[in-house]
């Protein structure tokens, strides 16, 4: 007896359509439809209603998988920016191009990123001139000497024609008087020129060695009279002690004459400015005894150097030209006083 009847044939038919029916039952089902041709339409209907999958472009799932691709739809922004920033290696750039070729819609985004590069505006800073610094003229030693020589010649020539004309420059100091100070411990050679305006005097102090091994100081006669006493000398000394000592001189082999500042070595300056000068320190233990006689050039050079160092003189404001090896130029307005 057949298993398939008019009451259950539909269940077998579904199994047949779904291809789960065994070959024996398929044969029996076909036999059933031959015996019942009025029901064969049901078989045809099922075939018609069979769904057909529509054709569509499948997404490339790999594009979302990070393990397979460096550049994905999640992180492509970073690589687009890196590309315009020039940070991608050639390998990464190649991958990016490949990625963009697969995702043509993203090319516009890449182009938009390329447009984010700013083109610099041309802006001029009109106050530029105010930023420039003026050059300070440096005069070589040769020219310095030449200038001084020329100035001395001109002054001599000028004085020979008109001695009555008042000098433009006044002496900072001159040596007129010798005061003996009994201080045998003093072994420094000092040279001071102090502010003439403030102290109403200018001083050149110089220790010399006399025959009695006593020390003498030559001090300008305009120095206050009270300085002639020891007590006042101490006051004066204490003033000087505040200054930095830059020089000592071995005196024992220096004669009075050698150590003397000659009368013609009078210092002149353009204006009355404070000058504190002490020569450089020399270590007698390591250096041979020094017989030192200060030339006017030495004095001026070091005076100016010290002044600038202590900010008494302003190079810019006072217009002093100061060469690398400390050669003053327009400060020097000296001439011999006879």
């Amino acid at each position: 007896m057949s298993l398939i009847t008019k009451n259950n044939y539909e269940a077998y038919l579904l199994d047949y359509v779904e291809e789960t029916l065994s070959p024996d039952l398929i044969e029996e089902l076909m036999l059933f439809f031959e015996n019942n041709p009025e029901l064969k339409e049901d078989l045809d209907d099922f075939k018609i209603h069979e769904l057909t999958a529509p054709e569509f472009e499948l997404l490339d799932k790999d594009q979302f998988k990070k393990e397979n691709n460096l550049i994905t739809l999640i992180n492509y922004d970073t690589f687009l920016i890196a590309e315009i920033e020039g940070l991608n290696s050639s390998e990464v750039s190649g991958q990016l191009n490949l990625f963009l070729s697969k995702n043509s819609s993203l090319k516009k985004e890449f182009m938009a990123y390329q447009k984010t590069k700013l083109v610099a505006l041309s802006i001029i800073f009109k106050e530029k001139e105010s930023l420039f610094q003026k050059e300070t003229k440096v005069i070589s030693l040769y020219w310095w000497f030449s200038a001084v020589a020329a100035a001395v010649i001109v002054l001599f020539w000028f004085n020979s024609f008109n001695n009555s004309i008042e000098r433009q420059y006044f002496p900072l100091a001159e040596i007129d008087e010798v005061i003996l100070i009994e201080d045998e411990n003093e072994d420094l050679f000092r040279f001071y020129v102090l502010d003439e305006e403030k102290l109403q005097t200018a001083i050149i102090e110089k220790k010399i060695v006399n025959e009695d091994s006593k020390q003498a100081y030559k001090i300008k006669n305009k120095i206050h009279q009270e300085l002639k006493t020891n007590d006042d000398a101490n006051v004066f000394a204490s003033l000087l002690e505040q200054d930095e000592i830059l020089d000592t001189l071995e005196l024992k082999d220096v004669s009075l004459q050698e150590n003397e500042i000659k009368i013609e070595e009078i210092l002149y300056a353009e204006n009355s400015v404070k000058i504190t000068y002490v020569d450089e320190v020399l270590d007698n233990r390591t250096l041979p005894p020094v017989k030192k006689k200060m030339s006017k050039f030495d004095i001026f050079r070091k005076v100016i150097k010290q002044q600038v160092k202590t900010k008494i003189l302003d190079k810019g404001r006072d217009g002093i030209l100061f060469a690398e090896n400390a050669k003053p130029f327009n400060f020097i307005r000296g001439k011999n006083k006879k």
Partner: peptide
């Protein structure tokens, strides 16, 4: 030197001003 400083003014003051002004 002063000259080198002035060259810097010449070379960079416009750029510097532009950068600051834009900010």
């Amino acid at each position: 030197t002063v000259s080198e400083y002035n060259e810097s003014v010449e070379s960079y003051s416009d750029n510097l001003y532009r950068f600051v002004l834009k900010n």
